[in-house]
Amino acid sequence: METLNHLSRLLQEGDDSGVDALTREAIASGIPAEDILRALLAGMAVVGERFKEHEIFLPDVLLAARAMHAAMGHIKPLLIAQGVPGGTKVVIGTVSGDLHDIGKNLVGIMLQGAGFEVLDLGSDVPPERFVDTAVAAGAPVIALSALLTTTMVRMREVVDMLAQRGLRGRILTIVGGAPVTETFAREIGADAYAFDATSAAARVRALLPVA
């Protein structure tokens, strides 16, 4: 227990080398990977709360995410081997014609920190790739990002494609980015809108049925 608390603290401090070493130590001492994951997610939840309360800043969150990434490199293969189900999958990307990806990356990091499995398609992603990936991976959520008024209209194409393929309701969409508003999200038929990276994970979670 002390090891896991320590691990959570190191993660909150963004100490990636400390988290890396202690994760390896924990595995070697026989602590189940699932317990290690739980401690890491608890640490990320604290980080998320502190960020929401303006006690820490985005780079601190990203440092914690980097530490989480280091730990996951060790425990993910074990979780897979043990048949532990991964987090809910979210397909994420910046829409066709748009090359901005910082905001999308931040949302992806926040989602991972909240325990989601993120399938990041990058930027300039055509609509069919979003839909095909979500179908193939069994992802119930597609998260769409755009930073330009000229490209945010492409979000509608993804929503429409889901409708054409009879997937509306089964695969949900969340949209965000500087020019995107709640009103625009409603107009194009998106299922949710996130104002920023911090709120995205909560919005995605609210979309999904309670487990």
């Binding site: 963004g14 985005l58 780079p59 990203l62 440092l63 995410a65 980097r66 990434h69 990806d101 910082i102 990356n105 931040l106 990091i109």
Partner: peptide, 14 residues
């Protein structure tokens, strides 16, 4: 910036 995010160093990238 892109390289930093790609290799997981998002804090420095940001």
């Amino acid at each position: 910036i892109r390289d930093l995010f790609d290799r997981g160093d998002s804090a420095l990238g940001y």
